[in-house]
């Protein structure tokens, strides 16, 4: 439904000196879903509503404008099934299996038969065959016919009827495949059955699983140290203290500061060829030490090849300087 709310300039042009405008919506004749007893299941109902706009005109009088009524037609279904879905963990990574539990409760007044639960699993999460178990109280419930897998949708057929206020519990396992990292981890379950010859459907229950990339992560960790090298081999031996507050700049713009021991670590670094350089202005009195053993280390920057999920080391050896800023 649309309201036409005149802009102030438009109103002025029309000669209205409108200072305030009040729009109210009046919903009329609407049947709420909870009042199922009043409406037989399957019967059509219509919801009518009208809108009223109130404003103060130039003369100071309050005036109202009422819209035409609109009607929405709907078919309420008897909401007799309530579904609840949980998982045994909040986050998982590929290779993990998750146990989902679904509770279906009949809150209606009639017994539901032909009970089935349709679960749409997250992308990349697969139902583990024969893992489903169901129980009504302490009584195991047969799953017959066996669960039907169709793509991401698994349909469980519970060979039991559900009396009012009874709860059936269904649990099953699912395996995270490597594809799971591409999905959002959210799945949707719906229970349905037949009551008095009419199909009864529950609301939709959902459960979100945070999916960590795990071993499929494309990030790695870089660790390293900045220390005073005394034998110019680029490695820290006892007696070669770490330099605190040295600043390193990484190729992605990260600025990392060493701790009081001269150590640093940087997690969640995107894998690939990573370089970092030492900001010599952050350590007055020191500059990069020569390396008498490896030509490669005689460089202002360190380059490492960081594999996904891997660990790489960048050590910077420094020595007291005598020519600050000249290199």
């Amino acid at each position: 439904m649309q309201f036409f709310i005149p802009s102030r300039r438009w109103l002025r042009r029309l000669g209205f000196g409108v200072v305030g405008l009040l729009v109210s919506l009046l919903m009329g004749g609407m049947f709420l879903a909870g009042q199922a007893q009043d409406v037989p299941a399957g019967q059509n109902i219509s919801i009518t509503n009208t809108a009223t706009a109130g404003f103060t005109d130039g003369a100071g009088a309050s005036r109202n404008v009422t819209s035409n009524p609109t009607t929405v037609r709907a078919t309420p279904s008897p909401s007799e099934l309530v579904i609840l879905k949980t998982g045994d963990r909040a986050s998982a990574e590929p290779g993990d299996s998750v146990v989902y539990r679904i509770q279906v409760r009949n809150t209606g007044t009639t017994t539901v038969t032909n009970l089935q639960v349709i679960d749409t699993l997250p992308f990349g999460v697969r139902y583990i065959e024969n893992s489903a178990r169901a129980a009504l109280g302490n009584t195991p419930v047969l799953l017959d016919p066996p669960p039907d897998e169709d793509g991401r949708t698994v349909t469980f057929f519970l060979a039991t009827s559900l009396a009012p206020n009874q709860t059936v519990t269904l649990s099953y396992g699912a395996l995270l495949t490597p594809d799971a990292v591409r999905g959002n981890g959210r799945n949707l379950a719906v229970a349905s059955g037949t009551a008095n010859g009419v199909t009864v459907t529950s609301g939709t229950a959902s459960f979100a699983l945070a999916i960590r990339p795990g071993i499929l992560s494309d990030c790695g960790t870089i660790i390293g140290r900045v220390f005073v090298d005394k034998n110019f081999d680029g490695e820290q031996q006892p007696g070669e203290p770490g330099v605190p507050n040295a600043v390193l700049f990484f190729d992605d713009g990260n600025r990392v500061t060493t701790d009081a021991e001269g150590l640093f670590s940087l997690a969640y670094v995107v894998a690939g060829t990573r370089t970092a350089t030492l900001d010599l202005t952050s350590l007055p009195g020191y500059t990069l030490a020569p390396n008498l053993y490896r030509i490669e280390k005689n460089s202002t920057a360190r380059m490492v090849k960081l594999s996904p999920g891997g660990l790489a080391r960048m050590n910077f050896a420094v020595t007291p300087t005598f020519q600050e800023g000249r290199r």
Binding site: F232, L288, A289, P290, N291, S299, P320, F322, Q323, R327
Partner: peptide, 9 residues
């Protein structure tokens, strides 16, 4: 060409 310092002078 040296990118790093020399040993201590």
């Amino acid at each position: 060409y040296r990118a790093t310092a020399t040993t201590p002078p």
